[in-house]
Design a binder for these strands. Structure first.
Lengths: 251, 251
DNA sequence: TAATCAAGTGTGAAATCAACACTATTTTAG
DNA sequence: CTAAAATAGTGTTGATTTCACACTTGATTA
């Protein structure tokens, strides 16, 4: 178990000795948490990037993140970073993948646990979205700058995950305001998948998934409201909402 | 970005300073890799566990694993541990999840990157499977002992992943010998899902999936052989094999 | 007030899924 | 050696799901 050496042959005595070793005695990598934060803004899928203030990769854009603290869970760490960057803390958050190639940070060995967060645009105050005090900016996923470290890889991974998750879960709900029209919901899918969907089939699938999913845990309910969109739209425009917003989807 | 402190307000000068900090200066957790190794043995789904030789959790069973080395990728680390435990190194290996709750190891902060490995029973030499030099043993997933650390949680997670992966990929191929009958393949599914499948539907789905999947990357081909099983079976027994065994499935 | 724009709604053909039973061949037991 | 037992192998039907496809209604805007 507690084998710090590659040597495959050890006497029982050696094994017992090694097993008692304190893990704190060994070389340890740094561990960071990076968060891919997606939102839908201006009819486009955007990701939040921050500009690096110092080397390495000075002035390049990067996924926000930081070192974990010793008494903090990975998820708490991700939430803390997220709050620091966006001011928001009620979001969908999911662990994505852990990247740990030895050369990925030129300074030292850094292992990063990547998270995926979805936040709804209206939760962002204009200050956070626009301010450059922290020099953070939303980028379209289809017009990205060169990224620091292996962050392009992480982003690719995140997009892939988001797309496939959209197929069999209700994560899209996290990207839509409290009240919305079905057309707005459809746009979310179209933007993320980058393809046009058929309106009638989309609505049909929604009600079918609705019925199937309701039997499960982590419920939600697509609820038709009596209200109608105040202004700015055409035709009859029913509003909907999700009565039980999903806190978190296990997988 | 490179913020080791929680203090959310920093002057630009402070930020620039922090950005230059060497990550090696900070508190670092220990990082381990744990591997959930599944195989099918005796008509049952088994996982390899090792008995702990020292505290904490002395004498309890645990998922094999160990500390990563500083110049080794996470995957290489997992492969090394796998080879040490089983002698096998040509296996399906997939990153599962990273567990990092502060209290999960009583000694110090230990973050573990869990991997899932599938190995085919015939690749195991009787020595590794039976020897207790390393005190490793295969346990049925349906008759597990109490496990050290949060390893039960990791195992639950792994089983869940395996089951769902079986639905939309061909990972089962990793658990079957070079040549096999369709009935044997079906048993793999039945054992893992813990439910009986319809023979005709199973075979039909196989050929359908076959046709669909072949268009993709990471191809495989279910190939019918002229041979027949030498002995020990009833009826006509066609043998099959996968002509291009899958190295690795991305997800 | 006429023209434009998006909302909203149903059907049929094709593919997929789920349930279901018998015959042929080999092994094993008497 | 012959009968009984065990497993291999094979299609059809009805139900469900998927996909393609077009017109009417109502609000906005010129």
């Amino acid at each position: 178990m507690t084998k710090p050496k590659t040597n495959p042959l050890e006497t029982p005595a050696e094994q017992a000795f090694l097993a008692q070793y304190n893990p704190a005695d060994y070389d340890r990598p740094s561990v960071t948490v990076d968060i891919v934060i997606f939102t839908i803004l201006d009819n486009d899928l955007k990701v939040l990037l921050v500009r690096r203030k110092g080397p390495p990769y000075q002035d390049m854009w990067a996924i926000p993140g930081g070192f974990i603290e010793m008494n903090e869970s990975l998820e708490a760490s991700a939430l803390r970073e997220l709050k620091e960057e966006t001011g928001v803390d009620q979001v969908y958050l999911e662990q994505l993948y852990t990247f740990g190639e030895p050369g990925r940070d030129p300074r030292t060995r850094v292992i990063t646990v990547a998270y995926l967060a979805l936040i709804e645009a209206s939760q962002l105050t204009p200050v956070q979205a626009g301010s450059d005090a922290a020099e953070a900016k939303w980028f379209s996923l289809y017009a990205l700058p060169d990224l620091a470290f292996d962050h392009q890889l992480i982003l690719d991974y995140a997009l892939q995950r988001l797309r496939s998750k959209l197929e069999y879960t209700n994560v899209a709900f996290q990207l839509v305001p409290e009240k919305f029209t079905l057309t707005e919901l459809q746009r979310i899918y179209e933007i993320i998948w980058h393809e046009k969907l058929d309106k009638r089939n989309f609505r049909k699938r929604l009600t079918i998934r609705e019925l199937n999913s309701t039997k499960q845990d982590g419920d939600y309910m697509l609820e038709e409201l009596a209200e109608t969109r105040p202004g700015g739209n055409y035709g009859p425009t029913k509003l909907y909402r999700f009565s039980d917003r999903v806190e978190k989807i296990v997988r």
